[in-house]
Amino acid sequence: MNKTTMKVLISLTMTVAMAFIMLFPSNETTASANSSKYDSIYNVANSKLGTRYVYGSTGPSSFDCSGFVRYIFKHGANKHLPRTAQSQYNTTKKISKKQLKKGDLVFIGASTKSIYHVGMYIGNGEMIDAQNRGVVKESIHAPWWHVVGYTRAI
């Protein structure tokens, strides 16, 4: 094989390798990007702790639960979610409790067809959500909650 052919083959191989890396990033790269998005969303959510609850409100000075989740994802990750908790559940990727990670959504209701509350999981069995006490951090295992599902929005 002459030098020109060898250079072309090496160049072609490098181009294919780079395209493959761009199309299929490693889990580390994806995990890092998701962690960064979570941090951004969490920072927006955390900045709203104590903000008052108003049914139907979408922020920034008051929220209901789905308005809060919609706001923090829009401002923290430029991710647009539907307006209601039920619609947010219906349009995001369903996951199991075992797959639950920081940044995932926790849905409360009578069933998956009757969801009335949503919060964002922040780790250690806790979520941040907007409810009658305003925006708070609390256990997802509180006796007044009936968790019916989990989803991943990012």
Rank of each mutant, 00 (worst) to 15 (best):
H141L: 07
L105Y: 05
A142P: 03
V135S: 10
H141T: 14
D129H: 14
W145L: 10
V135A: 11
G125P: 02
E138Y: 03
D129R: 08
I108G: 02
E138I: 08
K137T: 15
N124Y: 11
V118W: 10
M120T: 11
N124D: 15
F107W: 06
I108A: 00
Y116P: 01
A110L: 09
Y121F: 07
E126I: 03
H141E: 09
L105K: 01
D129L: 06
P143S: 15
N124E: 12
A130M: 11
W144C: 02
E138G: 12
G109K: 01
I108F: 00
V136E: 11
G134K: 11
Y116G: 11
T112V: 05
I115L: 04
H146K: 15
V106E: 00
A130D: 10
V118Q: 12
N132E: 08
W144D: 12
P143H: 14
G134A: 10
G123P: 03
K113Y: 11
A142M: 07
I128P: 00
L105T: 04
A130R: 10
K113W: 05
S139P: 12
N124W: 08
W145V: 00
I115K: 01
I140M: 15
G119K: 04
N132F: 08
Q131S: 13
G119N: 01
H141I: 04
S139T: 14
A110G: 12
M127G: 03
I122E: 03
P143Y: 15
W145C: 03
G134W: 09
I115F: 00
R133Q: 14
H117N: 06
G103V: 02
V118C: 13
N132Y: 10
E138A: 12
M127S: 06
W145Y: 14
G134L: 09
G109F: 04
S111F: 04
I122L: 06
H141V: 02
N124C: 08
V135D: 08
V106R: 04
M127T: 06
Y121K: 07
S114P: 07
W144M: 07
I128R: 06
M120D: 05
V135P: 00
A142F: 01
M120I: 13
W144I: 07
A130P: 11
I115V: 11
G119D: 02
S139Q: 13
F107K: 00
A142G: 07
I108T: 04
I108E: 01
A110S: 14
I122G: 01
K113F: 05
G109R: 00
W145R: 13
F107Q: 02
E126D: 15
A142Q: 07
M120F: 09
M127Q: 13
K137C: 09
S139F: 12
V106D: 03
I140N: 02
A130T: 10
P143T: 14
E138H: 11
Q131F: 13
I122K: 02
K137A: 13
R133T: 13
D129Y: 09
Q131K: 13
N124V: 06
G119S: 06
H117S: 04
K113V: 05
I140D: 04
L105A: 05
E126Y: 07
H141S: 15
V135H: 11
S139W: 12
N132S: 12
H141K: 13
S139Y: 13
H117C: 04
S114Y: 05
A110N: 14
H141D: 14
P143V: 11
P143K: 14
T112Y: 01
V147G: 03
S111L: 02
V147K: 00
H146I: 07
Q131H: 13
G134N: 11
